[in-house]
Write a protein that binds this DNA or RNA. Structure first.
Length: 472
DNA sequence: TCGACTGACACTTTTGAACAGG
DNA sequence: ACCTGTTCAAAAGTGTCAGTCG
């Protein structure tokens, strides 16, 4: 599990691709310590299988569940303290993709990011004991491509890459989330491409084989007749779309087509430490996204469940612009849209990274070294919280100023495009309205004040842009 | 013309109301 | 009256595929 300890104030940012997976493995003596809060992904093997092929998730107007769905195990929480669990979807990069001859290719710049929504786990808030006693499932999370969706589903763009982020917030109620500390986790193998129709027949086959609802489409299922009569037409169409190689995939077993693309990886399962060191190189072989990387567009984290704990989690103070570049570089993935732009303009994307990371990184450490009781409360701060067992990595600086109406006040904290993103309804009060806390950089504080709204209750709170909707 | 998208379809699983029995 | 277990229909979740749209 990785934490904000990687974001030291004196962080001097090695190239993202090299630092990302490494940092969590060996926190230095001055590493920012957090508690033993730990999140692990359930069904990692299944996720890995999908990831190795290139996971696709169907998005529909009425909303579609994910498969595999997100399910995690938690440990290290205070049994009696209440927590809120959230999930949101983060763009992997700033590109739109197309499926072309058995692989994904960049098809241009990403479309403006739709309103960023967060799925609140229906059990939230619940004591740590509740979250830890069994795995936490986000089964009912739905994805949609309907930007006008009123059901609270997470809005995504088709043919864009995303990965889910899991947030744990210690908060007695939804009202107090704003003053709470976010612990954020991601799992590289959960990244996926949002599609309106499956592009890769291997993914289709995997889904049919593993999703009970699709049992009727299995070869051995009761629906042989339907498949026998209709499948050929489908295959013909798919073949036309994907090329002749698609026909092979129909014959392949799941392990077979896994190996077909990632054979080398399969052989290295047991050699984790070495693999970690070399993964920046190896992932090129394992990832279905090699085409993009070859163009310097992006890098993908290597699949592998065994490695996920070391670098697939993060802890950070959400910030509208700062977190995003950090995220992508942190994991050795693709640059943020903004950094991508700079990269395409001749820059490496690093400048964006370096200039923004301190906004996050400088927050925690010097504060963390103090006893929590001495921490200066954020101005306009609301109820004080119990100190978490883990060191706080920062305090979410949310103003209580009632500067606007729910759903209108801007909170582009999760806006992956930062200032570039046309926020529209997300626009909020100007930074100048709320003086930053002393320990925050001006920029960070300026970003943080966009959180200035108030959560009244679950229903109302769910309408806020930060965690725009809950889905229960 | 082509690729992305939509909606109807057949199938399966899940959910919850209704009921029976203890 | 309450609880538990069973049954069954409706709802919801799947991928397929023909058609639409830009």
């Amino acid at each position: 599990m990785q934490s904000i300890r990687d974001l030291k104030p004196n962080y001097s940012g090695p190239p993202p691709s090299s630092m990302a997976p490494m940092a969590p493995m060996a926190p230095g003596p001055d590493a920012y310590l957090q508690g033993n809060l730990r999140m692990t992904l359930e069904d990692p093997d299944l996720w890995k299988t999908f990831h190795e092929i290139g996971t696709e998730m169907i998005i529909t107007k009425p909303g579609r569940r994910m498969f595999p769905h997100c399910k995690v195990n938690l440990s290290g929480l205070i049994p009696c303290a209440k927590y809120i669990l959230l999930v949101d979807m983060v763009p992997e990069d700033g590109f739109r993709y197309k499926w072309n001859k058995e692989k994904w290719e960049v098809a241009g710049k990403a479309e403006p990011q739709p309103p960023c929504r967060t799925y609140l786990h229906p059990d939230s808030p619940a004591p740590g004991s509740h979250w830890m006693k069994q795995s936490v499932s986000f089964l009912k999370l739905k994805l949609t491509n309907n930007t006008l969706d009123q059901h609270g589903h997470i809005i995504l763009h088709s043919m864009h890459r995303y990965h889910p982020r899991f947030h744990i917030v210690q908060a007695d109620d939804l009202f107090s989330v704003r003053w709470s500390v976010f612990q954020t986790f991601t799992f590289p193998e959960t990244s996926f491409t949002a599609v309106t129709a499956y592009q890769n027949t291997k993914i289709t086959k995997l889904k049919i084989d593993h999703n009970p609802f699709a049992k009727g489409f299995r070869e051995e299922g009761t629906n042989k007749k339907r498949r026998a009569t209709k499948a050929p037409a489908c295959l013909e169409k798919r073949a036309k779309q994907s090329g002749a190689s698609e026909r092979e995939s129909e014959e392949e077993s799941i392990p077979d087509f896994c190996r077909s693309s990632f054979e080398a990886y399969e052989g290295e399962e047991g050699d984790l430490p070495k693999r970690k060191e070399a993964e920046a190189v190896k992932e090129e072989r394992y990832s279905p996204w090699s085409a993009e990387r070859e163009n310097g567009v992006r890098t993908a984290s290597p699949p592998g469940t065994d490695t996920r704990d070391m670098y697939n989690t993060e802890q950070l103070v959400p910030g509208p612009a700062s977190y995003q570049p950090y995220r992508f570089h942190e994991y050795g993935k693709s640059p943020s849209p903004s950094s991508s732009v700079s990269s395409s303009n001749g820059g490496s994307g690093r400048s964006s990274f370096e200039s923004r990371v301190p906004d996050v990184a400088t927050v925690p450490e010097h504060e963390a070294s103090k006893p929590r009781a001495q921490e200066a409360p954020p101005p306009h701060c609301g109820p004080q919280h119990l100190p978490a067992p883990q060191d706080y990595t920062g305090v979410l600086n949310m103003s209580v100023a009632q500067a606007g109406k729910p759903g209108v006040i801007g909170h582009h904290i999760y806006g992956p495009y930062g200032a570039e993103q046309p926020l529209g309804q997300w626009s909020g009060p100007g930074p100048a309205q709320y003086p930053p806390p002393h320990h925050l950089t001006a920029e960070y504080a300026a970003q943080a004040v966009h959180h200035g709204y108030h959560h009244g209750n679950v229903a109302e709170w769910s309408q806020y842009p930060l965690f725009s909707y809950s889905c229960w």
